[in-house]
């Protein structure tokens, strides 16, 4: 046991805590993190290569496992719901690809500082570096999964148009939101260690509550009035809107303004909250981790 002085102190707020708690330092953390692209860019790739090291197909396994899941579930649910495969399979596939990004950004976000404890305690770096690395890794996964989407377009052509390019800003929004979510959940989880398992459960639950395997519009247009009215409740689920802004253009469906509005509002609110937390607790992460 180190021979420091042990003392029991009631919560105290010394002068320097206020000095560490500044907007300038919070934004500086984000800016410096962004500038270390070489580092997190390299580490993000490393994470992926690491996972498939010594396997013959390497990162292609990401693509293959996504393809297998989507085909299996597409066939299964097309049968269960009595839908046509050429509708069900593309829907499920895109849902899975997008959810993989959203879900992992949040669940891995809960561990983003805890898992990097050694790095945080040994190398001075802005804490945002770890979040950039996480989002970059998830983006690379997303890129690998897009290959499946490309193949799907050949087998089941979608009515894509110029409007489908809306998927690009939509994915940018997913990244921007994934970033604040991971940063926020990451900081709070570092202090409260119950949060990571809670996060995993909630994300899992949201997977079922969000129209990924079930087709939202089919239920809305159901002849059964009860089902149709219940389906409308799904609008309250923010993940629905995140999914729709990117899935609709990827399926060549029409532009729905309300999904974008909801996402933009949550983006602003989420970042505002995250910046407050970052400002107040950025300097505490290395103490808590």
């Amino acid at each position: 046991m180190p021979a420091q002085v042990l003392s029991t102190a009631v919560a105290r707020t010394p002068a320097t805590l206020h000095r560490s708690r500044s907007w300038g330092l919070a934004f500086d953390d984000l800016a410096r993190g962004w500038r270390q692209q070489e580092l997190w860019g390299h580490l993000g790739w490393q994470d992926i290569k690491q996972r498939y090291r010594r396997s013959v197909l390497g990162p292609l396994w990401i693509t293959i496992s996504m393809a297998v899941t989507a085909i299996a579930l597409g066939v299964l649910y097309a049968g269960l719901f009595g839908n046509r495969l050429e509708e069900q399979l593309p829907y499920i596939l895109i849902g899975f690809i997008v959810w993989a990004f959203i879900g992992s950004s949040i669940t891995e976000g809960a561990m983003v500082f805890i898992a990097n404890e050694r790095l945080i305690k040994h190398l001075p770096a802005p804490i945002s570096v770890h979040v950039f690395r996480l989002i970059w890794r998830q983006t690379l996964f997303f890129g690998h999964n897009l290959l499946v989407y490309a193949v799907m377009l050949v087998v089941f052509p979608q009515p894509l148009s110029l409007a489908s390019l809306a998927a690009v800003p939509a994915f940018a929004l997913l990244m921007v939101n994934g970033f604040w979510a991971a940063l926020l959940v990451g900081i709070v989880s570092t202090r409260f260690r119950d949060l990571p398992p809670v996060t995993v459960s909630v994300v899992q639950l949201m997977f079922f509550m969000t129209p990924i395997v079930w087709i939202y519009e089919d239920l809305l247009n159901s002849t059964n009035e009860t089902i149709a009215s219940r389906a409308r409740l799904a609008e309250l689920n923010p993940f629905l809107h995140y999914l729709e802004i990117i899935r609709r253009p990827m399926l060549g469906e029409s532009f729905e303004l309300r999904h974008w509005v909801v996402v933009l509002v949550i983006t602003v609110l989420g970042w505002a909250l995250t910046l407050v937390v970052l400002r107040n607790y950025r300097a505490r992460v290395s103490y808590w981790v």
Binding site: Q46, Q50, R118, L119, I120, H122, L123, S286
Partner: peptide
């Protein structure tokens, strides 16, 4: 790495800390 909980610490210049030679080393590469 630690910002002081009391008082101030200001450091000017690029810092290279060498605390643990193993940190940031990946055995698989």
């Amino acid at each position: 790495i630690y910002e002081p909980t009391g008082g101030t610490a200001s450091v000017q210049g690029r810092v290279a800390p060498v605390f643990d030679l193993g940190v940031g080393m990946d055995p698989e590469i």
